[in-house]
């Protein structure tokens, strides 16, 4: 999804390689080197790290119990008493709920992408490497899933299976498998035709060994970049599902769900109602920016 064009970090073309210290030479070392010198990506990476830490240490950081309701302190504004960010429609502490909400948002943002990366990536590499009929069958099935806009596909599967986090996970994973598969297939097909793969076959390497030693390393970069861009999409879709009541079940704090339940209160306390959206926006924006940075850093032709 993310293709924003910011200027490429200062020229590290092939000619500049010689100036690098001798230990920076493998592809991944190059990528790391470029990332370390890209302040924008580093900044948004830090934001993500911050969100991740908040999610992990939520029980320690959150000032209150996120599920503790209070009939008197409902929909209080920012800074009311010791409610730093106000309270929601049941008088629960927004700060705590937002911190706890990072958990399910991150989980639903990362897990489907990881699973889809594994499943779709594997299918794509197999389809690309084996080719022929196998390729046709796998890719045609993927094409069918491509016939659905992603949110529609997620809603269709979740809607039919019913709500809940697991079903949401499954449906989002299914949403991301086809694009991962396609990326992996394209990359594999390209690599498969290169001479070094033929050379490996000529030395008697088996399919599995060639895929592991020679294909994966070369397919990983494009697939990984693509997957990193999908995290933000996954976060948005997952929060959308929760918003529709198809994701995490109440009273679990979840940003999408919070937006949904707070929607009735926009006339009374609009700012507080908008807060979970800000959290989603910041997280998804950060993942998008980091993904962009990764893509640029990995765009080294070696």
């Amino acid at each position: 999804m993310s293709n924003a064009t910011t200027s490429v970090p200062s020229g590290l073309d092939a000619g500049g390689l010689d100036q690098l210290s001798p230990d920076v030479r493998s592809y991944w070392q190059m990528v790391g080197f470029r990332l370390r010198h890209d302040p924008v990506t580093l900044f948004f990476g830090a934001v993500i790290l911050f969100v991740i830490l908040a999610a992990i240490f939520a029980p320690l950081i959150a000032p209150k119990d996120p599920t503790l309701t209070s009939m008197i302190d409902r929909l209080k504004p920012i800074g009311y008493k010791d409610y730093l960010l106000g309270t929601d429609e049941l008088g629960r502490d927004m700060t705590s709920r937002l911190i706890w909400g990072a958990r399910s948002s991150l989980l639903m943002g990362l897990m489907p992408v990881v699973f889809a990366l594994l499943i779709g990536g594997a299918l794509g590499v197999i389809a690309g490497y084996v080719g022929g009929k196998t390729n046709m069958v796998i890719m045609r099935i993927m094409d069918v899933f491509y016939a659905f806009p992603s949110i529609l596909l997620a809603v269709a599967i979740s809607g039919a299976m019913g709500g809940g986090m697991l079903n949401g996970l499954i449906s989002l994973t299914i949403v991301f498998i086809p694009p991962m598969c396609r990326i992996a297939e394209t990359a594999t097909t390209q690599v498969r035709g290169l001479d070094f793969v033929e050379a490996a076959r000529a030395t008697g390497g088996g399919t599995g060994s060639i895929i592991v030693t020679h294909i994966l390393g070369n397919v990983l970069a494009p697939v990984f970049v693509y997957a990193s861009g999908m995290v933000s999409v996954s976060i948005l879709l997952a929060s959308g599902l929760s918003f529709l009541g198809l994701g995490v079940a109440p009273p679990t704090p979840d940003w999408g769900l919070m937006l949904s339940t707070l929607r009735q209160a926009i006339y009374m306390n609009p700012i507080v109602c908008a807060l979970p959206g800000v959290a989603i926006l910041i997280t998804s924006l950060s993942f998008n920016m980091v993904s962009d940075g990764l893509r640029q850093a990995m765009d080294v032709k070696l």
Binding site: G240, I266, A274, G277
Partner: peptide, 21 residues
């Protein structure tokens, strides 16, 4: 460029809520 990054990062239903507000 910023607008386009925002466009794909924003939860659009939330953007709708903000517009309503």
């Amino acid at each position: 460029t910023s607008v386009s990054v925002l466009g794909v990062s924003i939860p659009n239903y939330w953007f709708g809520i903000v517009l309503i507000i």
